[in-house]
Amino acid sequence: GCFECLPNPINLRRPKKLRCAYKELVRLSQESRFSVNEVEALYELFKKLSCSIVDDGFIHKEELQLALFQTSQGENLFLDRVFDLFDEKRNGVIAFEEFIHALNVFHPCAPMEEKIDFVFKLYDLRQTGFIEREEVKQMVIAILMESEMKLSDDLLEQILDKTFADVDADRDGRINKEEWKDFVIQHPSLLRNMTLPYLKDISTVFPSFVFNTVVENA
């Protein structure tokens, strides 16, 4: 595994322990919807992601980008937002604990309310408690760039008009949490990215955890 790579002298954040301690696995399992074995399986995924560019036991933004886009170059607004929400401690890297906490929301058994909240925070770019028209515009421009599509300014404004007509029930020009919730309940497909079926039985996706397990049949 990656944690057994040769020491890297420029790697200052390399953790001393190569494996996640049993107590830590149990704690993370208790804090989440994952069993201890599932936390171990997710640790296999975490190790793979966290050593893809810098082998220091943390996921850097470039490593998340590499996994999602097969390139570590370029800017992507959505990647930035996802990274920021995973990075609870706001220290610029994702630790294993943060990885588990965030993936917990993507569990098929996580309540819809949690998923709705997560996406609201994701889209509330400036974190004002509202999704504003400028933010939606910025995100539409970002998705157009990502998919190399072009839209005229006029069409873009029409899409924004329609969106706010659909969602902004009190017509104050910004979307609050309640309006967002009401809209998403009517359009649950907007949450499709928020459920990862793999997480239902993660230990079969990453069976290699069996070789590294510290707990039998947890």
């Binding site: 999602l68 539409v140 899409i159 969106t163 359009h187």
Partner: peptide, 25 residues
């Protein structure tokens, strides 16, 4: 027709939001 779409339908198609790709071997 793009104009018939709600912006959030477009946005939800972003690769950056599709974490399923993390599980690709």
């Amino acid at each position: 027709q793009p104009v018939a779409m709600n912006a959030f339908e477009l946005i939800s198609m972003s690769k950056g939001l599709n974490l399923g790709n993390l599980f690709d071997e």
